[in-house]
Design a protein around this nucleic acid. Sequence first.
DNA 1: ACTTATCGCTAAATCGATTGAGCAACAACT
DNA 2: AGTTGTTGCTCAATCGATTTAGCGATAAGT
Lengths: 344, 344
Amino acid sequence: MKGVSIKDIAKQAGVSPTTVSFVLNGKAKEKRISEQVSKKILKLAAKLKYKPNQLARGLRTGKTKTIGLIVEDIANHFFANVAKIVEEEADKYGYKVLYGSTEDNLQKAKGLLEVLEYRQVDGYIITPTVNLDKDIEALKHARKPMVLLDRYLPNIPTNYVMVNNFQGAYDAAEYLMQQGFEKIAVVTITSEQIQMKERLDGFLAAMKAHRSGFPRKMLKKLSFAATKEEAIEEIKSFIKSIPNLDAIFFTTNYLGIYGIEAVKELQMQIGEDIAFISFDDHDLFRLYSPGITCVSQPIHDIARNVIQVLMNELNNNTNQINQVVLPATLLKRGSCSKGTNARI
Amino acid sequence: MKGVSIKDIAKQAGVSPTTVSFVLNGKAKEKRISEQVSKKILKLAAKLKYKPNQLARGLRTGKTKTIGLIVEDIANHFFANVAKIVEEEADKYGYKVLYGSTEDNLQKAKGLLEVLEYRQVDGYIITPTVNLDKDIEALKHARKPMVLLDRYLPNIPTNYVMVNNFQGAYDAAEYLMQQGFEKIAVVTITSEQIQMKERLDGFLAAMKAHRSGFPRKMLKKLSFAATKEEAIEEIKSFIKSIPNLDAIFFTTNYLGIYGIEAVKELQMQIGEDIAFISFDDHDLFRLYSPGITCVSQPIHDIARNVIQVLMNELNNNTNQINQVVLPATLLKRGSCSKGTNARI
DNA sequence: ACTTATCGCTAAATCGATTGAGCAACAACT
DNA sequence: AGTTGTTGCTCAATCGATTTAGCGATAAGT
């Protein structure tokens, strides 16, 4: 029940707790503890299976060896995968992860930040919601180690790791045009999330680079708060509202999934009646018939970089800012073949 | 940087830290602290935004208000969704969640348990791997609040929350027979996970109830450790090895996903050439053409029950054991319609 | 012989909250 | 007056590890 403490070891070794602490923290040399005593202590610690009490240590040192992970939705394919690798990588450095989902809700995000501060996490990995600026600023001001994930706040220079959203969307749009599609629509969300904005910008930039312009009516913005059913209905009427629509781009995975449902309900065939690209990959996109072309994010790289940057902050408290932008990859699948029967 | 401590409040209020502690813990009445002093302290605490230091509190009380969540794979649709709701529900009780994935690897599971003990979590939610019995037994012996998730250990009476795997699989098999399929195969994993065994048992029981028996060659066991590619190849040759195969059941979602890939690579059409059912639901199953019939687990209920049971343990330390078995639902989709063109 | 240095280790304070024991002041009662 | 009770609060120990300051003993230097 009760654990073995440093005192128990001290008593059995016939030395003081101080000495035990020095030895167990690898400061034997530095503190000039004799070999004999060192060995005796190490042996005893192993024998008694001593595990330092993290609370006591944390109380004294102010470090909890815990990091907070705030994502938009841990159940989302992208974030769940990031969370998995973040946990694995953090573990290598002796850190554990506390997580929470914001649902893109500012209040939830604030709540999570508060709880994590309260819990004295050593560092933060944050997928910021819109308007979280002040809170992030406060963290930054308090010099808390922190990395933003998936998106950043344009007005606040911080560490972040994300994908090149502009380029990813640009490539997608360009590809659609190369494939010969004429009427290309885009579906995004109303929320002012920067990564969504950049995806839209990338898309529009490609359109403008190759076409005379992009009519506003080819752009649909859905509210994040809408229910799944509402969203699907909106997408359906959007699609119906555009005569001769032949391609459509969705700026994130859950929109793409809604999009598939909408198209299906409209009795249209992806790859035949309409070309289809979504940002983010998903099992569904890979295995759908035809496969759904997507802009894939390098999830492993993202997660590893996040931990790398955070550990860097945690250890060397340099003032240097790390902003990592990784390339997104266009995975070409059947959904964008023109006119032919794309089912493979 | 440094937080407001109970001493700061005490000093400003002109009372002792003890008094402040009593008031802030709602023991003002019990400890007969006057109204005036109480109010003054509460006001000050609010004004100074006092946040009790969890480490100090934990060190003294032995409670961390943290629970450990061990799943097989946090990136898996089922576990990711459970994790999300577990976090939300735990939050309502003031608990935070530390998580980790076992990958169904005994050593990883042991490692996670060790770290969580070390971190002094108050309670455990565990998806046990095979052979984790001793460690679970030890936790139980130490009277640690604990709930098993998704599966249980037959030799150890503990709390658990899971779905009725036998019934779910039974229903699936029975449904396939009712639909008129003759040659029905099943794919599961070699691992001795109890929930997998029960799914297989349920399947076999239904077969035996309606048929003369079940030939061993219609059953395929895949190693959990196999790579995705290997698994798909094995499924392909399994399918090819059975002449006139007309239906197939997969005992878990990732197997079902492999199965879809395998069938696709064999140029067969689900719902036309072969009927298809998988345990667990997934976006892919819902949206595939045709929709994949599946045995769906009530994820919300599972997660809520898990927290309920755990909180019960945490608060009243009764010796009562809670074993919750929730019904699984067969979601009928196009993948099992016989002979007709099932694409919708 | 006397100062200074080095070695090997320890005492005690500290982190912040909790809690059992107990104290001063006054009231009530015999 | 003396005992007992009540009220309203405080003292000080405690949880377990870390860390600063420093002590006694021996060795080295002058």
